[in-house]
Design a protein around this nucleic acid. Structure first.
Lengths: 350, 350
DNA sequence: TTGTACGCGTTATCAA
DNA sequence: TTGATAACGCGTACAA
């Protein structure tokens, strides 16, 4: 047993490897491997001795080496468009729970709503050989090539919330069209006539589908769709604020009497703009959002919105992905998570 | 060149390796490695051909293999006690930004405020051979052994927000004692006499230090410290609610006229309890928090609190860790991020 | 400028 | 029940 203490590049103790344990116990690495992984074909006495030495030396199995030979990392890559949107932390929590119980880890990345950056993080995620990808698309995406490439190279994707339905990947989210129809119709039902919509980009599923739902309600209610009342706000507070400014600059006569915001954040921005114009909610303008982030219920005029079960979306998405990674199910599912209307003050319908 | 197409365990295309590219281009793997990493000693023509083939085959460098030989993963492990606390997503965003610009990735884990789970995630993080650890301790931790072991095995730790100062690791956070002194003193200065404190566990730095700050203010103001007014709430809304219930069950005469909550979440819980008792804030009971989460400013009675720059804490913590990982600085720093008092309605001092 | 041999820490395979 | 050997995909050291 020649034990040369060669490289000492790191200042600290070199970590024990299975080989190190093997030589200390006087067995081969394979026996150590078997003992450490609770595999059969190891004598009970040998196993105990190995476990003892392993603990004694603070052995930590090297997942990197394991991943290399196993061709699996037991790691999921998560792409979040904007960590600050309080919807997403809740989704992440759901993802984390599902991953943790299944023994998977999470590499978290942030696209910052930027297509180029999204592409970049996906590519590094592939380099890290994650077993699968959980993606909510950035606001500025136009091409799906990055996704397609990843899938083609064997990294399954499950989209959550902002989904891409036409490339064979599974998708988990609410029924955006139906939900936006619900909120819009709630307003229409209560007599609002000039209902505006702060919409998201058409390239993003929830932007597109929610707009559809808005339109459907107007058309069913026999209300005319006024293009000047459909303004692109995007998903941010600032976007909602700016879009609403535009609406409020319309001549008094053609101003909306209600606003359907694509999400709660945009609704908050709208509320801020409305407040600055010294208008009252809902008396002068009613407003509804979608998402039901925690703040929606506690702002000065509580926001009527769609309760979107973020945790469940994350959990379901992760479970779906893991199941596909392990070959138990096939990709291409479209999973709809139930959502419901939360009626509060901002719509003035109570 | 014998090319046996052996294993095809995964259904999809086998990913190209540097060897694959090498044989296609007709050079050795080393030349490929050099070309792909922009290293010298590669003919310009050869380099271009290699790059072309690499792109053509969608080559993705295998970080796993790279990490194994380099003994570095360029990955940081992040432990978050509770993802839902809106303070933490903001911290994560800061961490992510610093990590991304330095070329590091993040493995995100969740201790769920539980010591055993924290130990578990740290151990798997070590197995994944992260280059360093960013930790905010769970509420229930009592022992620091796990941290010490990690450090001893060569994985540096930087604590953020909830720190551990006595084990040689760097810490990044606000000056908790000073800040809690500030809020408490703000109340005392305005004539409140029976100031209660909803405190965190003494085993967690911010619980301990904030209690100290509270005490300091009382003692300097000549107010008696009443043990019945110091109640353990922990860091959650529910905890704040329960603790406040206890306070409100005190005989009228000994009830507090103000409450210093260990954080905003506990303060929200307190507000809920107070509202249920049909008491007014701040007329009947004033309340202040710490943290300044987004909701603090928008709840019906806006909360006076300490503005804690979460993003900056995360960014600084990550930068500090990366710098230590790369051997540019030594561990053991105590970095204080500035915070200031945000006076709003809940303290009744305006 | 390019290539060869070896090692990183682990698991699978097959022989002992 | 155990062990020797060959992968896994890449980088380092040194030879050509």
């Amino acid at each position: 047993m020649k034990k040369k203490k060669k490289r000492n590049s790191r200042k600290s103790l070199k970590r024990v490897t299975s080989k190190g344990i093997a030589s200390r116990v006087g067995v081969s690495v394979m026996t150590v491997s078997r003992a450490l992984n609770n595999r059969p074909y190891v004598g009970e006495r040998t196993r105990r001795r190995i476990l003892k030495v392993a603990k004694e030396f603070g052995y930590s199995p090297n997942h990197i080496a394991r991943s290399l030979v196993m061709q699996r990392t037991e790691t999921l890559g998560v792409v979040v468009p904007e960590i600050s949107h309080s919807f997403f932390p809740e989704v992440i929590k759901g993802i984390e729970q599902a991953a943790y119980s299944a023994g998977y880890h999470l590499i978290l990345t942030h696209s910052a709503e930027d297509e180029a950056r999204e592409k970049d993080v996906i590519s590094t995620l592939e380099s890290k050989r994650v077993d699968g990808l959980l993606i909510s698309t950035a606001q500025t995406v136009t091409s799906h090539k990055t996704y397609l490439d990843a899938i083609r190279m064997g990294t399954p994707i499950v989209f959550y919330d902002r989904v891409v339905t036409d490339i064979g990947a599974s998708c988990v989210g609410i029924n955006d069209e139906e939900c936006c129809y619900m909120v819009t119709d709630h307003l229409a039902e209560h007599g609002y006539k000039a209902i505006a919509h702060l919409c998201g980009p058409a390239s993003v599923s929830i932007g597109r589908d929610r707009l559809k739902g808005y339109r459907k309600s107007l058309s069913r209610r026999g209300l005319k769709l006024r293009p000047d009342l459909v303004i692109r706000s995007g998903f941010s507070e600032e976007g909602g604020y700016a879009a609403t400014q535009t609406l409020l600059r319309l001549p008094q006569i053609s101003r909306p009497d209600a606003i359907v915001a694509v999400n709660d954040l945009a609704a908050f921005g709208a509320m801020r703009a409305i407040a600055e114009h010294k208008l009252r909610i809902p008396e002068d303008i009613a407003i509804v959002g979608m998402g039901d982030v925690a703040m929606a219920a506690v702002v000065s005029t509580p926001l009527t919105t769609i309760q979107q079960p973020a945790f469940e979306i994350g959990k379901t998405a992760a479970e779906t992905l893991i199941s596909e990674v392990e070959g138990r199910t096939k990709p291409g599912k479209r999973i709809i998570i139930g959502a419901r209307l939360a009626i509060r003050k901002s719509c003035g319908c109570s």
